[in-house]
């Protein structure tokens, strides 16, 4: 028996809107630790890792570990029917073939339940090694989204370079080139507007902007995004989910042969 009650149901709505276009089907894993998902996009270039810790739920019951295969597009359709202020409860029976999403309005005057069929998904779980990243950039998530969107109107790939001068996002295309440099900025009044650059070693990596733009659909989840770079590793674009966990996107680099 599984029963997860999330007062801030909008978080789950936002998570689904962030990943449904990147991953078609995925297994949601439930354990005592929390509600999690790891999935690659169909071309195995990007990987999504989601964790919602059990402590973040108002009620969390998971009698035994359960893996539920879901079509994320269909799950997003159902969660879209929840109001932004609704409390969302996810329910499933052990060994059952469906999952129920229950939506309660804040004053309990509307209660809806949506039942969705589960599916068998053969997914490979990858071991993500703990890494010391050469550079970690923390910046406003809206700024990161803006940069990815702007650059994708010029070119298809972005070169992200971190030096002691700052972080540079560059692209080139048929019409010309673009470079955007952000410097560390901790002097702002609000911490969510800060840009913080931690650099051990200068690093420069090339990525497909199409994927970066897809990741930025998670912008409503967090005011800040963390971009972690190492020369021989996929970039990690992380959105923290308030008090509960994270949504991380890993993107393999483009490498000159």
């Amino acid at each position: 028996m599984l029963e997860l009650r999330l007062v801030q149901g909008s978080l789950l709505k936002k998570v689904m809107e962030s990943i449904k276009d990147l991953v078609n089907d995925a297994n949601f894993d439930c354990s005592a630790t929390g509600f999690s998902l790891q999935a690659m996009d169909s071309s195995h270039v990007a990987l999504v890792s989601l964790l919602l810790r059990s402590e973040g739920f108002e009620h969390y019951r998971c009698d035994r570990n359960l893996s539920m295969g879901m079509n994320l597009g269909n799950m997003a359709k159902m969660l879209k029917c929840a109001g932004n202020d609704d409390i969302v409860t996810v329910k499933a029976d052990d060994g059952g073939d469906c999952v129920t999403f229950m939506f309660e309005s804040p004053n309990q005057d509307k209660i809806a339940d949506f039942e969705m069929k589960l599916m068998d998904i053969d997914s490979e779980h990858l071991g993500i090694p703990e890494a010391e990243y050469e550079a970690i950039v923390r910046m406003p998530s809206a700024e990161f989204a803006r940069i990815c969107k702007d650059l994708s109107t010029i070119g298809d790939t972005v070169v992200i370079s971190v030096t002691k001068e700052g972080v540079k996002f560059s692209t080139r295309g048929d019409i010309g080139t673009a470079n955007i440099v952000l410097r560390q900025n901790t002097s702002v009044d609000k911490p969510e507007e800060a840009t913080i650059i931690e650099m051990e070693t200068p690093v420069s990596l090339t990525f497909a902007l199409r994927y970066m733009n897809s990741f930025t659909k998670a912008t409503p989840l967090a005011s800040q995004v963390t971009v972690s770079l190492s020369s021989e590793l996929p970039v990690v674009v992380e959105y923290k989910i308030a008090e509960m966990g994270y949504l991380r996107f890993y993107l393999a680099p483009k490498i000159e042969e």
Partner: peptide
């Protein structure tokens, strides 16, 4: 131009 790598090149299957 540079060639797109896959995630599985970096992370091992469990």
């Amino acid at each position: 131009g540079p060639k797109q790598c896959t995630i599985t090149k970096f992370f091992n299957k469990l």
